[in-house]
Amino acid sequence: MREITYAEAIREALRQEMQRDPHVFLMGEDIGVYGGAFGVTLGLLEEFGPERVRDTPISEGVIAGAAAGAALTGMRPVAEIMFMDFTTLAMEQLVNQAAKTRYMFGGKAKVPMVLRTPAGSGTGAAAQHSQSLEAWFVHVPGLKVVMPSTPYDAKGLLISAIRDDNPVIFVEQKLLYRTKGPVPEEPYTVPLSVAEVKRAGRDVTIIATGVMVVRSLAAAAKLAQEGIEVEVVDPRTLKPYDAETITKSVIKTGRVLIVHEAYKTCGFGAEIAAMISEGPAFMYLNAPIRRLAGLDIPIPYNRTLEYHAVPQEENIITAVRELMAYK
């Protein structure tokens, strides 16, 4: 199959949905000729024109708020917030408005919007351009949160998100934009709220999100040479997430490592650990549940410091070996 990058896969999903449905339009800062800070929307202005690819002033609040308003009227806006850090400026509209609309109005209104935003560290962009704030959104009923780790998933999940009638926060990982993978040319969907086992194994279950899926798979390949068979589960949608696939895997392996870039304290991993502890898989555990996450510090600018602020492949390998020490 043809291979394209994660960024190209997202662009293709946007293009194909815009071709299919005239209600889909894009709005955000510098998404036109500039193509967005990471070039994801390059070429779409030329193809669809400034009515449907709308550059806005630097006004994050109204980007989110106006997307919600347009969605109320039946449009399917895909808003872009240039860095996930800036979603904090749009919280009122996302959390208090968009998330609650369907419920407050008893289904007499809906908000089929998508908010795309690049997250994560590793680019040297420091504390206010490197955050992974997905747990903030996962906490809020009414929002869906999607976080793809491969080009294939990125395209299929984005198409599903656009067609979904709920507000969806679509978290893109900066470090994955240039990674390549097989992606069908025709439109297809990857269902929301369905996890995928990215690698099967019998010894340890790693539940990882975003770029940590890639690092976990690399770690798993090395650990296999030592005879340790790791199963890697990617939830893909963090809200509402697929507890069943995770539970099944844990019952099989009895050892759990949860890896994400976001902070450990109250991170998505805390939810997964709690879910496992409360559920049927608990009785099958052979070792304490282990979490590897970003250190609880703002991301430092200096590259050496930044590298050590979030889990790397070697940390994953060490953590798995430690889990294997429990018999």
Binding site: E29, D30, G32, V33, Y34, D55, P57, I58
Partner: peptide, 11 residues
């Protein structure tokens, strides 16, 4: 200018 945005288009 603000990135690709000419001031007259934003104000």
């Amino acid at each position: 200018w603000a990135m690709n945005m000419r001031v007259a288009k934003a104000v």
